[in-house]
Computed example of a mutant assay.
Amino acid sequence: MKIMVIQGPNLNMLGLRETAIYGAMKMEEIHEQMKIAASQNSVEIDFFQSNFEGEIVDKIQECLGTFDGIVLNAGAYTHTSVAIRDAISAVALPVIEVHISNIYRREEFRHKSLIAPVCAGSIVGFGAFGYHLALMGVLQICDQLEKLKAANNN
């Protein structure tokens, strides 16, 4: 099984920016913890970060036929990007949306996620641990999909 982790704008600044909201953990440290969890579950995991919407769309599309699921923190694009939403719909892979902060306890403009309706699930407000929860969630969904596919082939 292969999982892609996609990080959106400003997430490369984790550990430096607004630590009262996002914590002191750097993106690379989060990725290291995810690598450990993936290894413990015999899963391949890759990481991608971009501050550019089109690059995120391209990466989602590249996952089709190569990855089994995606963990996505689209950052601010969560609230604005129809393009990312459409890319998620187009690839039809299980995507778990993750946010470090609880977007529903923040500014009102952050309360609306354009991507949530096309994601398999959303994890918000658990800090960096949310990535672990998202990884476990996408693994569970992928496992269920594999079992359904196997049952339908018999």
Rank of each mutant, 00 (worst) to 15 (best):
N73C: 12
N73H: 06
N73I: 07
N73Y: 06
A74I: 08
A74P: 15
G75I: 08
G75L: 10
A76H: 06
Y77E: 03
Y77F: 15
T80M: 08
T80E: 04
T80H: 07
T80P: 05
S81W: 09
V82K: 13
A83T: 05
A83R: 10
R85K: 15
R85C: 13
R85E: 07
D86S: 08
D86N: 13
A87F: 11
A87Y: 09
A87P: 13
I88R: 04
I88D: 00
A90C: 14
A90T: 12
V91W: 05
V91R: 04
L93D: 00
L93S: 04
P94A: 12
P94V: 09
V95M: 08
I96S: 05
E97L: 10
E97K: 07
H99Y: 10
H99P: 14
H99N: 13
I100M: 09
I100N: 01
S101C: 14
N102D: 15
N102T: 02
N102G: 11
Y104Q: 12
Y104T: 10
Y104H: 15
R105S: 14
R105I: 00
R106Q: 05
E107D: 14
E107M: 12
E108Y: 11
F109E: 01
R110I: 06
H111M: 07
H111L: 07
K112W: 06
L114F: 15
I115D: 01
I115K: 05
A116F: 05
V118M: 08
V118L: 07
V118D: 02
C119T: 09
A120F: 12
A120E: 07
A120L: 13
G121L: 03
G121V: 01
I123P: 03
I123A: 01
V124P: 04
G125Y: 06
G125T: 01
F126V: 02
A128L: 03
F129Q: 13
F129C: 10
G130M: 05
G130E: 03
G130C: 06
Y131H: 09
Y131N: 05
H132P: 09
H132G: 12
